[in-house]
Amino acid sequence: CHSECLGNCSQPDDPTKCVACRNFYLDGRCVETCPPPYYHFQDWRCVNFSFCQDLHHKCKNSRRQGCHQYVIHNNKCIPECPSGYTMNSSNLLCTPCLGPCPKVCHLLEGEKTIDSVTSAQELRGCTVINGSLIINIRGGNNLAAELEANLGLIEEISGYLKIRRSYALVSLSFFRKLRLIRGETLEIGNYSFYALDNQNLRQLWDWSKHNLTITQGKLFFHYNPKLCLSEIHKMEEVSGTKGRQERNDIALKTNGDQASCENELLKFSYIRTSFDKILLRWEPYWPPDFRDLLGFMLFYKEAPYQNVTEFDGQDACGSNSWTVVDIDPPLRSNDPKSQNHPGWLMRGLKPWTQYAIFVKTLVTFSDERRTYGAKSDIIYVQTDATNPSVPLDPISVSNSSSQIILKWKPPSDPNGNITHYLVFWERQAEDSELFELDYCLKGLKLPSRTWSPPFESEDSQKHNQSEYEDSAGECCSCPKTDSQILKELEESSFRKTFEDYLHNVVFVPRKT
Rank of each mutant, 00 (worst) to 15 (best):
D249R: 05
K234F: 07
T118F: 06
K218Q: 08
L229K: 09
D249L: 14
D377V: 09
K253L: 14
L279Y: 12
W322H: 12
R347S: 03
G131A: 02
P336M: 03
N340S: 11
W344Q: 13
Q258R: 07
I114W: 04
P304S: 05
H233C: 12
R272K: 15
E236T: 14
D326P: 09
E236L: 06
G343K: 14
P329R: 13
S166V: 09
L331Y: 05
K375T: 04
F299H: 12
G217R: 08
V359Q: 01
R164V: 05
R202I: 04
L196R: 05
P288S: 10
F193M: 10
E302Q: 11
W322F: 06
L266F: 03
S166C: 14
L180F: 11
W207F: 14
T371M: 00
P351C: 09
S400L: 13
R370N: 03
F175A: 08
P284K: 03
N211K: 08
K234N: 14
Y223G: 10
G125T: 05
E122D: 08
E146Q: 04
K177N: 15
P342A: 07
Q354R: 14
R369V: 08
E368W: 02
N150D: 05
T273I: 12
S269R: 14
G139C: 07
S376K: 04
R179F: 10
A303T: 10
E302F: 12
W322R: 03
Q121P: 02
I250A: 10
E111S: 08
V128L: 15
S119Y: 07
E246I: 03
I405T: 03
L279Q: 08
I114A: 00
K226E: 02
R347F: 05
D197T: 06
R176K: 13
S389T: 14
T323L: 14
F365H: 15
L227Q: 06
S376G: 09
R244S: 05
Q258W: 05
N141G: 15
W352N: 03
G159P: 01
L280Q: 00
A316F: 14
L172R: 04
L151G: 05
L265T: 07
L108I: 08
D289E: 02
G256E: 06
Q339H: 14
L362I: 09
W352T: 04
L406P: 00
S119Q: 03
P394C: 09
Q199R: 06
T254G: 14
S401V: 15
K209T: 12
T386M: 06
S239K: 12
N211V: 10
K103E: 02
T353S: 12
Q403T: 13
I405A: 03
L161Y: 03
E146T: 04
G159M: 00
P411V: 08
V363L: 11
D276M: 15
L123A: 07
L266G: 02
N320T: 15
R138T: 01
S158E: 07
W205F: 11
N320A: 06
I188H: 09
S401L: 11
P329W: 04
A374H: 04
E368Y: 06
H233K: 04
P391R: 03
N263V: 07
A385W: 04
L392A: 15
V363E: 00
A120C: 03
E262C: 05
Y305S: 08
E187W: 13
G159C: 06
Y300W: 07
F221L: 09
L293K: 01
E156F: 05
R347P: 09
L331K: 14
D292L: 02
K253V: 14
F268P: 06
I214Q: 08
L180H: 10
N263L: 05
F220S: 11
L345W: 14
L252Q: 12
W344M: 01
N255W: 04
D335E: 15
L201D: 01
D115L: 03
L123F: 05
K409A: 09
K360I: 00
V381L: 15
K337Y: 13
G256F: 04
T361Q: 03
K242L: 13
I188F: 11
W322S: 07
K337S: 14
N334T: 12
D206R: 07
G373I: 00
K253H: 14
N200A: 13
L406N: 15
R165E: 06
M297K: 08
S400R: 14
N211P: 07
K112T: 08
G217W: 11
G139T: 07
I154P: 03
V381Y: 14
F174N: 03
I181A: 01
E122F: 10
T361R: 01
P336K: 10
M346C: 08
L331A: 14
P351M: 03
C126K: 03
L108T: 13
L161C: 06
V238L: 15
I250E: 15
R370G: 12
V390S: 10
A251E: 10
S230W: 04
A259N: 01
T241Y: 09
R247P: 09
D393W: 15
E122Q: 14
N190R: 13
L392N: 12
E109R: 15
T127G: 13
S158Y: 13
V390L: 09
N198K: 03
D115V: 15
R347W: 08
T118G: 15
D377F: 05
I157T: 01
F290A: 06
T361W: 01
F296A: 04
S402I: 13
K234G: 13
G217S: 09
T371D: 14
N387G: 13
P288Y: 14
L151F: 03
